[in-house]
Amino acid sequence: MSLLENINKLFDHRVRLGIMSILMVNENVNFKRLKELLEVTDGNLASHIKALEKANYLSVQKSFIDRKPNTQYAATRLGKKEFQKHIDALEEIIKRKN
């Protein structure tokens, strides 16, 4: 099953896959926007972000706008590379099946 070698376990979840998909095509995205797009609860989203951050797939930048915390997320170079590998693997599997 060498085909599945490039399937990244970390992306094997709807929310984490969603976060990375969004960060691939947007430079920076804040927490609220991620929540809107993915339609998940705060706690759920935060835990998945933490997992991706731990793997160094995304970077976190905290700042304040009008004294309210505003946290921006961006995909790291490593994160983009790993995600691309994951997509390529998915496409390869689909191709072989047909």
Binding site: R14, L17, S21, R33, I87, L90, I94
Partner: peptide, 15 residues
């Protein structure tokens, strides 16, 4: 996997 790819594409477009 088809579903997964189409979810990715959908989110990329929507975002």
């Amino acid at each position: 996997y088809h579903q997964e790819i189409s979810d990715i594409r959908n989110l990329m477009n929507r975002s």
